[in-house]
């Protein structure tokens, strides 16, 4: 089955991973800008990172028949530095019209601080001025519920936002309902220990249905599994779900969401 991984940090992965993903049916990925594991020291570090995301990475993926798309921003963890964040925000428009750029992301909150909220709101404003889609990171562990509610509050307070152009990511059982009820797309991250297992992800699909739900691996430089979406597909099959229902979640839903972006240019594989 062809599938799309809508959230994976391929700059942290090897070329062997691209080969494995291609062999497992992956035809496209989207890569949100992310924390590198250390705080970058200057806006120049972000410029180099955005160059890598928008030029080099797309070629590396194309060598394996995978479309690489990306989202750009300063992530929530580094957003604590408001001065640097504003420098990055001022630079972002230079990159937003490049091929494969789907929008602004993954913005969000990390420890739910005032500075993080300030930078989140300024990203929202830029996205509205430039007509970009949004991909939003919700915090980890004990901060997730509070942070998700704060994010939904900020999104709801901005009347310019089209909710069907916003993906709120890393939902779990205690946050998926308000995200869907308020009309946003929701992403389930299949991540060992700190997020969701394939089994729990299928539980959520069974409880809420497939509409506006995506699943992703969020594979990155830490403990993570880039082939987690095929694990989800296998769990769906083991429970007896129809191939069409599985395809809706892992292929058609990301296509529908990404197709709203002017930077998305995807040619479906020939069956």
């Amino acid at each position: 089955m062809y599938y799309i991984d809508p959230h994976i940090h391929m700059v942290s992965r090897t070329t062997d991973d691209y080969e494995t993903l291609a062999k497992m049916g992956c035809v496209a990925v989207s890569e949100p800008a992310f924390w590198a594991g250390y705080d970058r020291g200057s806006v120049a570090g972000f410029r180099d990172y955005f160059e890598q995301l928008t030029r080099f990475e797309s070629q590396r993926a194309a060598d394996y028949g995978i479309l690489h798309t990306t989202w750009l921003c300063i992530n929530a963890k580094e957003a604590e530095n408001v001065t640097l964040s504003r420098e990055v925000l001022a630079m972002l428009p230079e990159f937003l019209d490049r091929p494969g750029v789907l929008g602004i992301g993954e913005i969000g909150l990390n420890k739910n601080t005032r500075n993080e909220a300030i930078v989140f709101l300024e990203h929202l404003d830029l996205a509205m001025q430039t007509d970009e889609q949004l991909l939003i990171h919700t915090p980890h562990l004990e901060d997730k519920y509070q942070g998700t509610r704060m994010i939904l509050q900020m999104l709801s307070d901005d009347r310019r936002i089209h909710r069907d152009r916003v993906l709120v990511d890393h939902v779990e059982e205690h946050t998926v309902r308000p995200v869907l009820e308020q009309g946003f797309w929701a992403g389930i991250t299949l991540y060992p220990v700190s997020k969701c297992t394939p089994q729990r992800a299928v539980d959520i699909i069974e409880l809420y249905g497939p509409e506006r739900l995506l699943v992703n691996s969020a594979g990155d430089w830490g403990p993570s599994k880039p082939t987690a979406v095929p694990d989800f597909i296998l769990e769906m099959r083991r429970r007896g779900h129809a191939e069409q229902a599985i395809r809706r979640v892992v292929y058609e839903n990301p296509l529908e969401f990404f197709s709203q972006s002017r930077g998305f240019d995807f040619t479906p594989p020939v069956n």
Partner: peptide, 11 residues
């Protein structure tokens, strides 16, 4: 699962 996650969450 939802109740457990709420239990481990900040308000």
């Amino acid at each position: 699962a939802e109740q457990l996650l709420m239990h481990f969450s900040r308000p």
